[in-house]
Simulated scan of single mutants.
Amino acid sequence: MKHQSIDQLKVIAEVHPDAPPAPLTRSERLHRWADLLERQRDRRLATLHGTEYQPPERRAEMRSPDSPLSVAFEDPILRSDGLGGDTYGEAKRYFELTDWQLHEIVCYCHLGETMSAASAAKRVRSAMNAGRGGWFARLRHALSG
C-alpha cells in the first residue's frame, strides 16, 4: 500500500477529516472496557447484589457508584460511541452481553462487596471469548439468553 498525504488524497478522492469515526465493534468495546479496568488494576469496585434474582425491569435499572459499569461510563470514547449510562441494562445492551455474562462480571455472589478492577477485567475478557468453548458452553450460552 502506498502512503499518501491528505493533500494527495484530495486530488483523487473526497476527504472528510471531520467525519465521525465508525462505531466500535462489540469486540472493540469489550476490549476497551477491559483495558480501562486493567489500567486501574488495584482500584476497588463495587458489585451489584443478586442480579440473577431481580425481575428484568429491576435488573435493567441496577447500578452502583464506582462499579465496573461506571468505569466504562467514565470513558469519553465509549460514551461518544453510544454507552448511555452505568446501569446493568445499558451495559447489557451496549456491550451486547447476555444476562449470564454480565452477571459473571458484576454480581456480588462471585466476589463479595467489592472486587479489584483487575478481576473485573479478567471477567470482561472471558465474556469476549464466550462462544469459543465447546458444545456445552455454546448450549449454556444459548439457553441463558
Rank of each mutant, 00 (worst) to 15 (best):
T47N: 00
R39N: 14
G134E: 06
A130S: 15
R26W: 10
S64C: 11
E74W: 03
A121V: 11
D7C: 08
G50L: 06
D18M: 04
E52K: 13
A60K: 00
F136A: 15
Q8S: 12
L111T: 15
L143Y: 04
L102F: 04
S5T: 13
I6W: 12
N129A: 15
T114Q: 14
S144H: 08
A118V: 04
A13R: 04
L37Y: 10
Q4A: 09
L83I: 01
D7I: 07
E38P: 09
G112F: 00
T98P: 04
D81S: 08
Q54D: 10
M115E: 11
G84I: 06
K92G: 04
E96F: 03
Q40D: 14
W33L: 14
Q4K: 14
A117S: 12
D99C: 07
H16Q: 14
E90F: 08
L102Q: 00
L45V: 05
P20E: 07
G145R: 09
I105T: 05
P23K: 00
Q54H: 14
Q54C: 11
K10L: 07
L36V: 02
R41P: 07
A120L: 08
E61D: 14
V11E: 03
Q101M: 09
I77E: 12
D99N: 12
F73C: 08
R93C: 09
G133Y: 07
P65E: 11
E113C: 08
L139Y: 06
R32Q: 13
R132D: 11
H49Y: 15
G131K: 03
V124F: 00
L24N: 03
L102V: 02
R32G: 05
D18W: 06
R39I: 05
G84S: 12
I77C: 04
A19F: 02
T25L: 06
P23Q: 03
S5E: 00
T98W: 02
M128K: 12
Q40R: 15
E96H: 12
H141D: 13
G134Q: 10
H31V: 08
P20C: 08
T87G: 05
R43T: 09
A127R: 09
E28Y: 10
E52N: 15
R138D: 12
H110K: 11
A117T: 02
R132P: 05
G133F: 03
K92P: 13
L139P: 10
T114F: 14
L78Y: 02
P65C: 05
P55G: 01
D66M: 13
G131L: 05
H141K: 10
Y53E: 11
P17G: 08
P65W: 05
Q8V: 01
S5C: 04
E14P: 02
P23C: 06
D7G: 09
P76F: 05
T98M: 01
V71E: 04
A91G: 05
R58M: 11
L111S: 13
S5I: 00
L78T: 07
S80P: 02
A142P: 00
P21N: 13
P55K: 00
S144R: 02
R29E: 10
Q101W: 00
P17F: 01
T47L: 08
A13V: 03
R93W: 05
V106E: 09
E61Y: 06
T98L: 05
R43W: 11
R41D: 13
M62K: 07
N129I: 14
E113P: 13
